[in-house]
Design a protein around this nucleic acid. Structure first.
Lengths: 249, 249
DNA sequence: GTCTGCTATGTGTGATCACAGATAACAGAT
DNA sequence: ATCTGTTATCTGTGATCACACATAGCAGAC
């Protein structure tokens, strides 16, 4: 192999925080971003976007050399994701995206309804006008993609994610948001199998109806209507995946 | 310092798995337990038992030498707990138990009601006779401790935890259980401030009433009654802590 | 006394090395 | 051809070293 390009010994590690007496508060807080944080964010993005299939394996060193760092930051990022059930390391010393048996999928769906329902109720109550507009924006994007002659599943999936996350962010409950994100990390790999299923998946789905109902309820500040629509959205998407019979066990 | 006792270089690392042709399946699966796993479990236990106060700081090397390993396993364990919000590493390079502002505490209480309520409903539906008995067992232990002349807060707290966890385990939803455990890791440090508040805390609290109601509902398989009692338990315990006005912000 | 600048120590982070064990490829025997 | 024992390679895990930076302690100037 003899891979030696781009020596990892650069040690960018952290920005210098500049503090000059006099404009103390003027300078924006520079948040420390470790390499492990970056790798963590990258892996999260891959999982959320459904660019990793359940059961897919990889190695620490492989990832490390692909990113251009040593194995160390990858180790830390992976161990965080393992703690969140987004990855798993088998007793055989092998890292992989966890499988998704039906039972686990149904459990996750149940938890999602509970937690995302809670976030939706809170968001309807707490969302600012700007945040409502943001949700509406993504709802339009999703609907527009659906009405295209040849809708792109991956694009629709991204708009779907943005819509949901904009809603949950508007709840202003950071811990709840993080837990929901952890849930999406787990279902991400199978969402892959959903929206990319066929070109008609987006068209024939009822997601756009639920989304419209959510936005409508958000606009008139009706928490329970929003929750009902959201749960229907989650449930029907789950039904579609379950009905395809591709989940093991 | 020159700390050199108990050289960490022993590398116990993993048990040998013995496979003899013929009694293949007879031998129990030996689950791999890395050092990092052990440290992780230890830290979890400390947090769950409320033996760490919010804001308390520590160092990787300090913990490592206390346990007798290198810093490496501690690093991994800590990074997992950081991912779960059970610990945090400040931009100043300092690891500590996160603070608990009122807003975060109230958010956690809300999430707990949702998730633990869900687990309770599932448990009432799915619990075996043995699991019901186990819950009843811990309920009796808690009640007994309360009726003592001088109840021990720490002991009562442990029985309280065992009661709740026995209930949630009976739901047979492993992911949900793990998420609830992650929640308790976060509230553990302040539960410390609760049950250890005064000798009368256990006596004057209404926890035993709620617990009895939960067990009764479990016995007659009434999910909603159980959930209502559980939510009341969580909420009133939270009210007590909030009323003491010791949480910052 | 109060403040400023410097130094020393200790921290988390990243890289590198060492090791046990798992996997796969292959040789030989049946 | 199928199985078995062996070897070679690669994996995650743990230990150790190196480094940038934060903090605390102290000395010096006003």
């Amino acid at each position: 192999m003899e891979h030696k390009t781009a020596s990892p010994a650069e040690s960018v590690e952290g920005e210098k925080e500049i503090r000059t007496a006099g404009l103390d508060a003027r300078v924006g807080r520079i948040v420390r971003q470790t390499l492990a944080d970056q790798v963590y964010a990258d892996l999260k993005e891959i999982l959320l976007a459904g660019r990793a299939a359940p059961g897919e394996r990889f190695t620490l060193r492989g990832l490390a050399s692909a990113i251009g760092t040593s194995a160390m930051p990858v180790r830390e990022a992976v161990s965080r994701l393992v703690a969140e059930n987004a990855l798993e390391v088998l007793p055989n010393r092998a890292v992989r995206v966890p499988l998704m048996p039906r039972a686990r999928f149904e459990e996750l769906r149940l938890i999602r309804c509970s937690l995302e329902g809670l976030a939706t109720v809170a968001a309807v109550r707490a969302a600012s006008a700007g945040e409502v507009a943001e949700v509406e924006h993504f709802e339009r994007l999703f609907a527009a993609e659906r009405e295209k002659a040849e809708p792109d599943g991956a694009v629709a999936m991204r708009h779907n994610k943005d819509l949901h996350f904009a809603l949950y962010r508007a709840a202003h409950l950071p811990t709840l948001f993080q837990m929901i994100e952890a849930l999406w990390l787990q279902i991400g790999p199978v969402l892959n199998l959903d929206f990319r299923a066929g070109p008609d998946r987006v068209r024939q789905g009822e997601a756009h109806i639920r989304h419209a109902a959510i936005v409508a309820a958000l606009r008139i500040r009706d928490p329970e209507a929003a929750r009902t629509a959201l749960v229907a959205d989650i449930w029907s998407a789950g039904d579609f995946i379950l009905s395809r019979g591709i989940l093991p066990d």
